[in-house]
């Protein structure tokens, strides 16, 4: 076995991963990018394995991405929209976990609106668990796909300056990306109004800015975050027009960044709120569509790693 292999049982977060862990996943995913671009994109690595997408919160793109990844590797993928089933019926998370576990899946992909819930579930099952987003905590496959996108375009992550802009307070994408980019030796900035920054964020190893022009000065990568609509009208920011004027990415603010700076967004975008269409659709600078493509490759790599770990699977009796 590869001495640099990823040796964790689950993928619950970026926190705790080594640079070697991350590089291993990215290298593996890199190969899947090429495979996915071929007409024949089916492998049988996961033949006979069961993957359950267990989403306690609505999702289209992440769930579909995992589903495509699982099927391309030959696994049986089952989608469970738990948000509309057992939670409504009052079942506790642990009971749901026990029920799922009894069906003997090989990988559980879990999204949950509460921070820490995926870890709790992982402690109650025998199979591998991939965190597909827990509350405002982590979304590790997003950070990995972002890293792969950057690495393929810039060649490496170390030494780059990345500005993460917008609703950092509520963002699991931001937390995972901060952890990953710092681990890989990039310099990370966050840019947001003070109402959208969590306390002590500077202790996460980021430089804090409240002004886009200052925050974007000479950066290599601009990562925009989604602003949820319930936060747009007064509770955290007063209005979408004010948000766009001061914190929305447009051509003017982007001038502060390096001339070859690239733009990313985890989607779904609010055009005219956090990002202008002219910037989002700039084929030379926007990596937003590539991010989606890299998402499938990264998730295939993660599934391969999880399924290949001998400590996962049914307990020996």
């Amino acid at each position: 076995m590869d001495p640099h292999a990823y040796r964790h049982r689950h993928l619950l977060g970026i926190e705790g991963l080594t640079p070697e862990d991350i590089t291993y996943v990215l290298d593996l995913a890199d190969g899947y990018v090429d495979m996915n671009r071929q007409t024949e994109k089916k492998k049988s690595l996961l033949r006979g394995r069961t993957l359950i997408n267990c989403f306690f919160e609505n999702s289209t793109r992440t769930r579909t991405s995992f589903e495509v990844a699982g099927k391309r590797l030959g696994g049986d993928v089952i989608n469970m929209a738990v948000a509309v089933s057992s939670m409504r019926k009052g079942e506790t998370l642990i009971d749901t976990a026990m029920t799922l576990n009894a069906m003997r899946p090989d990988v559980l992909v879990v999204r949950h609106p509460e921070s820490g819930a995926v870890q709790l579930l992982s402690e109650k099952v025998d199979c591998a668990v991939i965190n597909a987003g827990d509350g405002s905590h982590e979304h590790p496959t997003q950070a990995l796909l972002d890293a792969l996108t950057i690495r393929r375009r810039k060649g490496m992550l170390a030494g780059l300056t990345v500005a993460i802009c917008g609703d950092v307070l509520h963002s699991r994408v931001a937390r995972s990306n901060i952890a990953l980019l710092n681990t890989m030796g990039a310099r990370v900035r966050v840019v947001a109004p003070r109402t959208l920054l969590p306390a002590a964020v500077e202790h996460l190893g980021v430089e804090v800015f409240h002004d886009m022009t200052a925050g974007l000065a000479d950066v290599d990568i601009v990562m925009m975050l989604r602003l949820q609509s319930e936060r747009m009208h007064g509770s955290f920011v007063p209005s979408t027009r004010e948000y766009f004027r001061f914190f929305g990415l447009d051509e003017d603010k982007l001038k502060a960044a390096k001339p070859d700076a690239l733009i990313m967004h985890p989607g779904p975008m609010n055009r005219g709120v956090e990002i202008a269409s002219t910037v989002a659709d700039d084929i030379d600078r926007s990596l937003i569509r590539q991010q989606v493509e890299m998402g499938v490759a990264v998730r295939m790599a993660c599934l391969e790693i999880m399924a290949g770990n001998p400590s996962n699977g049914p307990p020996v009796k």
């Binding site: 509770s235 955290f236 920011v237 007063p238 209005s239 004010e242 004027r245 001061f246």
Partner: peptide, 8 residues
């Protein structure tokens, strides 16, 4: 209840 457009 809700913030005004202080920047603008």
């Amino acid at each position: 209840k809700e913030l005004t457009e202080m920047g603008l």
